[in-house]
Simulated scan of single mutants.
Amino acid sequence: MVLLESQVKLKAGDIAPDFELLGIDDKRHSLNNYSNYKGILIIFMCNHCPYVKAKADALNELYEKFGKDIAIIGINSNDSTNYPEDSFDAMKETAKEKGFGFDYLIDETQEIARKYGAMCTPDPFLFNAQKQLVFHGRIDNAMKPDDTATEKTMINNIQKLLDGEKIENDFDPSIGCSIKWKEN
């Protein structure tokens, strides 16, 4: 298991790269589908990573708290040939098992992860209603799977976004497993 920290490719103010990806609802989703929200949270994630598994409750909490105002989108970019537990069918099972209410999409070509500069799972990106990046980084301060969060970084930042306040620290790296890239 390779541990990575998120890296900066998109900078604060940059516009979210568009995508059209298949969701576990068997429908295609593009960034424009989420234009009616006050913000968009895109989380590069997968099924098998212990760092993502440890954040399942935090992801559900984000969705329950903000899902009406903030579009929450999980994107799995892992190579499912070498990591079958990250296959499309396994995504459906994981979402059902974990009770995910947010859209969970597959990035089979890995092109979207590359456009965003996603490196690890989870790797969250928070955008405002104009699709400008306002925060890239961790969900909370529990940096190992068995740590307990004492600061809910993403909840605080989403609240600031909704309240029209500036997010001072626009990059606070997430830590997780590396995205499993396909061999070229």
Rank of each mutant, 00 (worst) to 15 (best):
N36L: 03
A95K: 02
Q132I: 04
N36R: 08
I15T: 03
N47E: 00
E183L: 13
L10T: 03
Q159W: 08
D163F: 02
E85Y: 12
E61H: 01
K115A: 13
F102K: 05
E111H: 02
P50N: 05
N33P: 07
T81K: 15
E85S: 14
N157S: 09
K55E: 11
A149F: 04
M119T: 14
A95T: 11
I15F: 06
K144M: 14
L10N: 02
L21E: 01
I158K: 00
F127I: 05
D140T: 03
K96Y: 07
W181P: 13
I73L: 01
M1S: 10
D89F: 04
D57Q: 11
N128L: 02
P122Q: 06
F100R: 01
A58F: 01
I179L: 11
S35N: 11
N36K: 11
L21H: 01
G23E: 04
E165S: 12
F127M: 01
I75C: 03
Y63W: 10
I42E: 09
P50I: 02
D163K: 11
C177R: 08
P122A: 07
E20W: 02
I75Q: 11
C120S: 12
Y104R: 10
M143R: 12
Q159A: 09
N157I: 00
W181H: 11
F19N: 05
E64W: 07
L162S: 05
A54E: 01
S174P: 02
N156Q: 12
K131C: 06
M91S: 14
S174F: 12
M91T: 14
G13K: 05
T121G: 02
D86H: 00
D14R: 00
Q7R: 10
E93H: 08
Y83V: 09
I15E: 01
H29Q: 07
I73C: 02
K96H: 15
I72W: 05
A71S: 10
N82E: 13
D140P: 08
H29W: 08
G164I: 09
Q110S: 01
A16M: 01
I179F: 05
H136S: 05
A95G: 12
H48V: 07
V134M: 10
L62P: 03
Q132H: 04
D26T: 02
C177A: 06
